[in-house]
Design a protein around this nucleic acid. Structure first.
Lengths: 233, 233
DNA sequence: TAACACTTCTGGTCTAGACCAGATATTAAT
DNA sequence: ATTAATATCTGGTCTAGACCAGAAGTGTTA
């Protein structure tokens, strides 16, 4: 009844629990582990993929496999602030802006804003890190006319706060959709994983007091870096 | 820049979009597809796994691959009723009770209820289907003393309603946790997929008006059968 | 000391088979 | 016609290699 996977799992868990490897430390190379366990590399990789699925390990493109730290907890039913939430949970959050540009005529965007083809939007792409580990890529779309000068501001913080502080726009309602999705190269690259890897895709629509859509926002999370908590009444 | 995966995706999408295959219909056998595409089976399977990750296809243990229908939308921040929600979205929901028993001394349970080791609980395990497709396995734990006679009732509906109608217990608050998890054999079996496959694990804690925990509930969803919608204010 | 070229190591992708176990269809016996 | 045995088809798992591309370390040169 025991499968190779069980052996691999046990072996890796031993490495971790014996204290030989702490969070974010690198596992031995695949070829080495495969030999230790007397299985082929492809079988070993299958096992590592499953361990990744359980959130025990994570990978970084052509660098290796690492011991996963605790998950980051987010609440999708709450206006989130990545930086403060992360610090609250003992992580060191950082942000890198990947790109900023003005674009037009992308159907998914202007139709979300209920606008026409010629309307212009800012696109901002960012990666978020927890303790140097890339965990999320974020794409934000904002109406360009309304937020002129946006690119001159510090874009490493919360969009909501920027809108509030610099444009006096208050987000008072959000709608979000969560589903599994595979990563395109454009998002997989900054996360240091191969294209096609699974992710948790959170699409947010943020509205102001007039129920106008202000921010169209897509987040791609490493699925095993987070968990979600929701309270209901 | 084109990978085998792209070819596989295009090929399968063609099969689907050409109308040759409708939702829930079976794809050709892996060996056949592999020959059509001139790749090895292992490469093809890698591609199918990714298509599964995108929610385009799903598998059933040793039966084959099938075209995925639309996702079922759930709202984790809302007291859910599987049957009515499913019908509302045009699915035909069914439920099968896998098992019902009284148990004691399982740490995760009695500690969730903040009770001692000797306290007794009912365990109810059910599979939920949408249009004959198994999409979720549910494990419910309820204090046995408080709900004696539970096993004599019709257990195919909503737990919340049973508690309300037969025991006058009103659930007024819920807390839920959502994360990716791999399936143990016990849950993978009823879902018709191999053990170790990914799932979306939703753990629910349901409280009554006195803030007592009433129902400890774990749901394992096929990750690509659902999406979640959450509204925030 | 700093910049650059090179080598090595890593995971990522792929081939070409094999055998197993469960699901299904077929066939034979009742 | 029903049941039971059987053969076949399916995906699930695994072996034993190969080659590629990017990351990281090493040594050389300016």
């Amino acid at each position: 009844m025991s499968s190779s996977y069980d052996d691999i799992k046990t072996h890796v868990q031993l490495l971790i629990s014996n204290g030989r490897l702490a969070a974010n430390q690198k596992l031995p190379a695949e070829r080495e582990l495969a030999e230790q366990l007397q299985v082929t590399r492809i079988t070993l990789r299958d096992g590592l993929n499953r361990l990744e699925g359980e959130g025990l390990v994570y990978r970084q493109n052509r660098r290796g496999w690492f011991v996963a730290p605790n998950r980051f907890v987010i609440n999708p039913a709450q206006k989130v602030n990545f930086n403060s939430m992360a610090r609250q949970q003992g992580f060191k959050p950082t942000t890198k802006v990947l790109g900023f540009r003005k674009l037009t005529a992308r159907r998914d965007i202007y139709s979300a804003f209920n606008a026409n083809k010629s309307s212009k939007y800012f696109e901002m792409r960012r990666v978020r890190y927890l303790d140097q580990r890339a965990v999320m890529v974020e794409e934000s779309y904002l109406p360009a006319e309304r937020f002129s000068g946006l690119s001159d501001l510090d874009l490493s913080g919360s969009v909501t706060e920027i809108l509030q502080d610099s444009y006096a726009v208050n987000i008072i309602q959000e709608r979000c959709n969560i589903q599994g999705a595979n990563l395109e190269l454009l998002c997989a690259g900054p996360l240091g994983i191969p294209a096609g890897a699974p992710s948790l895709k959170i699409t947010r629509l943020r509205f102001d007091s007039g129920e106008h859509l202000i921010d169209y926002n897509i987040e791609y999370w490493l699925p095993h870096a987070i968990e979600m908590e929701v309270a209901t009444r």
